[in-house]
Each structure stands twice: as C-alpha cells, then as structure tokens.
C-alpha cells in the first residue's frame, strides 16, 4: 500500500470529528472519500496533510509515519493537496503560483540568490520550465502570465491542481475539485484527474460531492458519516449499500423504494 491511514481520530472539545478511520490507498489508484456535510472529510484531509495533529492513529506513506510532521514536511514527503475554498496566491501570476509549488524541490540557498550563482540560475530555469510544463499539462499554458486572482473560477481550480502537482507528490489529495463547476467543467476535471493518474502516475484521493464523478472515476470509495467510516468498496458496492443510502437519505428512505435499485 502507498498510503496507509490507520485508526485516525480527532476530537474538537467533546465532538469526535473523525473516529478511528482507516484508509488504504494502493499505488496508481483513484480513491474517493464521500459523506454528507460535516462528516469529517476535510478534517481527515487536514490530519493527513499535517494541518491538524491527530489524537490517535497513524498515517504511513510508503511505510514512513507522518504523524507529527508539519504541513511542509508532509509536502516534502510526497503528499500534496488542494483546498475546498481555493487558496491561491492571488497577487502572483499563474506561473509563479506553480513555481511556489516547486519550492520544496528547488535548492537555492540565500547565498546563491544574492550572488546569482550557477546553482541559482539553473534552479530557476529548471523550475520555470517545470512550472510551464505543468501549466501546459492542466491546459493553462497560455495563461502563465495572468494573475491568479484574474483567472476564471474553473481555471483557478486547475491552477491549484498544477501547483500541488509541482511538489512532485506521490499522493494528491483533492478537496472537492469540482465544487461550483458546471457539467462541462466537471467533465474536464474528470479527464484531468484521470490524466494525472495515467500520465504522471500520481495516486489521487478526492473528497467529492458530485456522485456521478465519484462513481465513474474512483476505483475505491470510502464513506464517512459523523466521523465514522460506514462503508467502503467499489462504486457498485457503495451504490447498493443500505448504510450509505441511510446516511444520505435517512432511515425511512433506506427501507423504501430508493434502496431497491
């Protein structure tokens, strides 16, 4: 397994936001985490990326335990993420945003930057090249010089993905990558996510509300409700799982006709 999350738990005061959730992600797969609002999905991501520290449990990337690492160390280790509410650096150009993602992979020291040493020049030109390549990859090659804040909404989402990819992750966590998108854009996003896996070999874990996307794209789905994992399996299993339907639709619905199909 590439990413193994074992019995992760987080409480805020008396509220158990994430309750002993276990998740295993195989290399080169696309995995989804779904659940009603407030199910603890984003908290789960925040723990994996080091923004919150879990109360219990372990997070292992290729066998290395990441609990207690700060977010930047997690990024170094190979987990990158996007945010539910886009967090781009609005005052920077698209290219610069992606270049920031390269930060962890560039090695320029203060000294190099001040004296423009060879290391600095090579680093910068490599970084820019890589950033441009990534922008081309997500289809923003022409917008490289635009300020991030000026980009349309869908492009901002894609730019955020490019920025995350720039850290050369092994696992990419996407927090609602299609939120607020229209069906066309969602379709594009789907293609992009597949490309990320197929072309770059990056494993993708996504939180998503768009059921159609989730069901068509993921090989494995984990369902959270009230912080607890209530089901996991392939799309077909999840669709027919009475517990999932109950979580989304309430007990009555589960017993009724909706559950039959």
């Amino acid at each position: 397994m590439l990413l193994e999350v074992n019995a992760l738990r987080k409480t805020f005061g008396g509220l158990v936001a994430v309750n002993d959730v276990t998740l295993e992600v195989a290399p080169r797969t696309i995995v989804s985490v779904i659940g009603p609002n407030g199910a603890g999905k984003t908290t789960f991501f925040n723990m994996i990326t080091g923004i919150y520290e879990p109360d219990q449990g372990s997070i292992k990337l290729e066998g290395r335990d990441l609990v207690g690492c700060s977010p930047d160390q997690v990024a170094h280790a190979g987990i990158a993420r996007t945010f539910q509410n886009i967090r781009l650096f609005g005052a920077m150009t698209a290219l610069e945003n992606v270049l920031v993602g390269r930060h962890a992979r560039l090695k320029t020291k203060l000294w190099d930057a001040v004296f423009h040493t060879k290391a600095y020049r090579e680093d910068e030109s490599n970084g820019r090249q890589a950033a441009q390549t990534l922008l081309d990859f997500v289809g923003l090659g022409k917008q490289a010089g635009e300020l991030a804040a000026n980009l349309p909404y869908g492009d901002q989402r894609r730019l955020e993905i490019a920025r995350a990819l720039a850290t050369t992750p092994k696992v990419l966590l996407l927090d609602e990558p299609t939120a607020g998108m229209n069906p066309n854009e969602t379709e594009d996003a789907k293609t992009l996510i597949r490309l990320i896996r197929d072309e770059l070999g990056v494993t993708v874990v996504l939180i998503e509300h768009d059921m159609r996307l989730v069901m068509t794209i993921s090989e494995h789905i984990t369902v959270l409700d009230y912080g607890t994992k209530i089901a996991e399996g392939g799309p077909r299993d999840i669709r027919n799982n009475p517990k999932v339907i109950e979580a989304y639709l309430g007990r009555g619905a589960a017993a009724g006709e909706y559950g039959k199909e």
Binding site: T49, G50, I51, S70, P71, D72, A75, H76, A80, R81, F83, R87, L88, F89, G90, A91, M92, E96, L99, V100, G101, R102, H103, A104, L106, T108, L110, A113, D123, G127, R163, A164, A166, T167
Partner: peptide, 20 residues
C-alpha cells in the same frame, strides 16, 4: 524562491505550508 516563499507566507500561511 526565498522571496516567493515570503510573499506566500504573507498571503496565506496555510497554503504556503501545504506547498512545502
């Protein structure tokens, strides 16, 4: 990259950290 890191921290600490 140092200067860019500074600007990122100014703009959004959490995103900056998540970018390593």
């Amino acid at each position: 990259r140092i200067g860019r890191a500074w600007i990122d921290i100014r703009e959004d600490e959490i995103a900056a950290q998540a970018m390593g």
